[in-house]
């Protein structure tokens, strides 16, 4: 079965496979990003993370982001897979691959994608640390918030 450009999965992520998926068409640049489970957060020693998603909407939101990137950087193609379930320290929770004719657009499209994931994809992590656990909460998800989208764009092009 062909690997989809966007996915939410319980399985370990494969950055090389994702890069191969987007990067096989004679372009000049591929930029990849892997987000890993960090062993510390806000002064706490993290034991592991537990990710939960509203899966059908998370897949739609990822697709929306990939489409937005395509609109901003027409020469770029982006793929993004997010993992859910229990993840240990050092494991990848998200992998992104962006390919383009030139490096500038590939870097920007990749950065834009991770910034937007943190804004609008309905996925949550519960941090289990020494002494307890807590749900982490970031942005209020609103795909129509133009200011948030512009912020992601500015970061991507900084």
């Amino acid at each position: 079965m062909a690997t989809p450009a966007v996915a939410v999965t319980h399985e370990p992520l494969d950055l090389d496979a994702l890069a191969a998926l987007v990067g096989a068409q004679g372009d000049g640049a591929v930029v990849t990003f892997a987000g890993l489970v960090r062993d510390h957060n806000q002064g706490r020693r993290v034991q592991f993370l537990e990710y939960e998603a509203y899966e059908p909407l998370a897949v739609r939101a990822l697709q929306l982001i990939v489409d937005e990137a395509k609109e901003r950087w027409p020469s770029a193609r982006v793929a993004a897979h997010h993992r859910i379930g229990r993840l240990e320290i050092g494991e990848a929770s998200i992998v992104i691959a962006a390919v383009s004719a030139h490096r500038g657009d590939a870097f920007a499209a990749c950065r834009y994608t991770i910034e937007r994931v943190k804004q609008i994809v309905p996925i949550w992590k519960r941090e289990h640390f020494d002494g307890g656990d807590v749900w982490l909460e970031g942005a209020t998800a609103d795909p129509e918030d133009a200011a948030a989208r512009e912020k992601a764009y500015r970061i991507a092009c900084a």
Binding site: G35, Y51, A53, Y54, P56, L57, A58, R60, A61, H82, S93, I94, I114, V117, K118, Q119, I120, V121, P122, I123, W124, K125, W135, L136, E137, G138, A139, T140, A141, D142, P143, E144
Partner: peptide, 28 residues
């Protein structure tokens, strides 16, 4: 979200709809 699409709180709901309420997200 209504039926797995982001929606507004003013959205009318219908018999059998799935209404999801979500706290601020923390993916990535």
């Amino acid at each position: 979200a209504v039926n797995t699409e982001y929606a507004r709180m003013t959205a009318e709901v219908h018999e059998g709809d799935e209404i999801a309420f979500m706290p601020p997200v923390s993916g990535g």
